[in-house]
Amino acid sequence: MTTTALTARNDAARPVGSDTVLDVDGLCVEYAGAGEPVRACTDVTFALRRGEILGIVGESGSGKSTLITALTRLQRPPAVTTAGRVLFHPQDGEEPVDLVRLTPRKLRALRWTSLSIVLQSAMDALNPVMRLGAQFVDALREHDRSMSHTAAWEEARRLLGLVGISADRARSYPHELSGGMRQRATIALALACRPELVVMDEPTTAVDVVMQRQILAQVLRLRREFGFAVVFVTHDLSLLLELADRIAVMYAGRIVELASATDVYRTPMHPYTRGLRDSFPPLHAPVTRLEGIPGSPPDLRALPSGCPFADRCPAVMERCRTELPLLEPHGGRSVACHLHDEGIRP
């Protein structure tokens, strides 16, 4: 079991294949503020395989939330997607669609059935004045009009059961549930129409560690059952190391490293990834003095011409100040750092 899991992880690091469900290419998002537009996401490129869990990790201002709202088209002014595409490949072999250019009508048809979203606050996703089950029934029947009312209620109870919420809770209102239960209900609701892709934006930040463990165990089990892919956004790298297949590390609006969880943990290539990894004190291993990453992230309105991490980087070189490193493939993984240039350009 251990060996198969390991191979699966190494496979996960390989580039775009035929079983890709989401193909993000050169995505740029800007905020049209009062002055010069501020670029919050720059040239984001990655591919997500079917059934894969891709973790996106970053600190405040890294652009991870901007990326998620752009991917799911939940963005509001003044955010604008200025370049790039987000190709969604439906399972049944239909033509891929570009989520960036999709009409609102077609987008609506795609939501829930192909692509669903779980947000940090369950209260945002649940209607406070509707019984829990009724919200499932609405979602189910919206997308499958042939489904009878009773069948939908039956399905709602089954879905709630999948996340460990007893069937009699279906008649409760959201405020009658605990925070953890609400978040689990939101996940069940997101899965109601069997989407191929679920985007989760900090889904466990508002719950306690024990509940977090329980929710993630259920997500993993549901994925085994339904086979959906997950984009999991969080600031907690320690969680992703345990949960994700691959991890994309974001800094100042760019992906600076994209590798399998094992590689990110064992051999981080970007100094920022390494610093972030070492920012989590161990739970069992011997405690040594850790330093975190000195300094603070750069102002997106005034990015340096070179590498945005240069000011905080322990391995900074001359060229880092002048030349921006781009995300380059590097043996099944990618990194944007001049330290690894020699290997690529002979």
Partner: peptide, 10 residues
């Protein structure tokens, strides 16, 4: 229940 980044991820 606490995440431990140094748990052997393999």
């Amino acid at each position: 229940s606490s995440p431990d980044p140094h748990r052997d991820v393999a």
